[in-house]
Amino acid sequence: MANELGNYKTCVSARSTDKEILKCSQDGGIVTQLFAFALEEGIIDGAIVAGPGEEPWRPQPMVAMSKDELLAARGTKYNISPNVSFIKEATRSFGLDKVGIVGTPCQMQAIRKGMLYPFGWRDVPDKIALALGIFCMENFPYQSIVQLVEDHAGQKLENVSKMNIGKGKFWVYTDRGAVVDLPLKVTHKYEQPGCHVCLDYVANLADISTGSVGSPDGWSTVFVRNAKGETVWTKAVAAGCFETKPIEQVKPGLELVTKLANEKITKNQKTIAGRASFGAGKALRNPYI
């Protein structure tokens, strides 16, 4: 596969230097730290993040305009947060001229398509100031998370302190210290079907993308992809926001990222091919032209 990691200028392993951010972050606290820095520096006026929703672990997109609000949205929820639905609202009701947004690879694709084809996103394209992408193999509907955590792992969702996918397993940690792991074989069938045609693992179209894969525990792999991303990243590192290590010097490193990216893309290309002959002489629709 030629370009499975997308274009990027630099790639490092990093973590935030802010203890408060790291306390509840998923890995290296990259997204929270970058947005906090960008807010402080005036690079963005606010950021669309997956904030807390009405039910435990159900995210609700929100516009965070302070560090406290960013902190409330730390951590991965492993289910759908339609962050892009706020992209116009952020520039209207919230009055932002410089919008930050975090999202999955498909949401970064949505953002870039929307910048080129803004059918209904009036005055939005020029106001997207920082788009942060997160690595994503697949996502789950909220009810799937309920099923996995409450039925398979046998834990009450409201008692869960963290969820994680790593080392080939789905991990559930509770407030009282229980740790349950489920093999990914169990989780696969609960995945969101729309994820199975996705051909992007590491958010190729973000300004900066990040995820745990490739870096040691508590650290994140960071791809700085374009000039805008580079400006923000360089400033943030210079301001002491991050500890960094060259990606070549950490285990498991880019080799694993490349392997997983290829696995995702190959698997989903097969799904797309299968859709062409899904029925008896009838195809399912192919969104890619």
Binding site: P61, I80, P82, N83, V84, S85, F86, I87, K88, E89, G103, T104, C106, Q107, A110, K113, G114, F119, G120, W121, V124, N139, Q192, G194, C195, C198
Partner: peptide, 10 residues
């Protein structure tokens, strides 16, 4: 559909 939210914004 993967629930990105583009439609609602449009």
């Amino acid at each position: 559909c993967m629930g990105c939210g583009s439609c609602a914004a449009a």
